[in-house]
Nucleic acid binder design. Sequence first.
DNA 1: CTTTCATATGAACCTCTATTCATATATTAG
DNA 2: CTAATATATGAATAGAGGTTCATATGAAAG
Lengths: 120, 120
Amino acid sequence: MSTHTHDHHSALDIAKNGMPKDELLFDLADLFKIFGDTTRMKILFSLFEEELCVREITDLLGMTQSAISHQLKVLKDSRLIGNRREGKTIIYFLADDHVRSIVGQGYEHITEGMHHDENV
Amino acid sequence: MSTHTHDHHSALDIAKNGMPKDELLFDLADLFKIFGDTTRMKILFSLFEEELCVREITDLLGMTQSAISHQLKVLKDSRLIGNRREGKTIIYFLADDHVRSIVGQGYEHITEGMHHDENV
DNA sequence: CTTTCATATGAACCTCTATTCATATATTAG
DNA sequence: CTAATATATGAATAGAGGTTCATATGAAAG
């Protein structure tokens, strides 16, 4: 499927190689769409600290169990989180460190803007 | 609750200090929402290479000038891009390197996933 | 088995947002 | 001044996505 010649190219190479295929752009936008929702962001922040079952996340966010489950599915489909069963409960956890990296970069962008003046 | 002993100082500390204020979460989600659109992602990729005026971006993406201008405004309001006037044309450019970092992390997450089995 | 607890899921509803269309603003040329 | 070019913007439309409601699935207890 992929005819690329990269083994592990730094992320910045995407800039040098011109416009990537539409499919990649679509996938990228799709990934960031996941982060672009307050509920999902709260879930991710919750899981930054520790693994949690659905009930715990539901209580933490003060939302309905259904809404949480729906968003957990979205997050899991994007492989940002994983889960395992323990008896009747299901435990969710962060899948990898990209979540922390991505959110961290976003955090920096936002907080840096706070020190500057708005010259628009 | 928190039984972790991690000790990094960086933006990732946000993970340790518990759930941040709702306002920050909202701002973060809002920032990522910007990246969660194919048109805006294409614009950003275009600007990875070089500064471009509105007409050039419009031609590159093959969309209407109005649609592009609307999205350029969204990107500029989020301070992801900047612009300057040169005669009648207005040149747009990336505002800082957070854009590259954030998109790069997302790119890595996606491409790494390609080596694994796809279970959706 | 049936019941209870924990989570998942499909459908409907509603809000949000990206595009289009028409028009406005700004700069330069004549 | 008017005309032409380049970009911006407001309103309306249409589609996507998040929450709710009702229900289904799955595991353990009685």
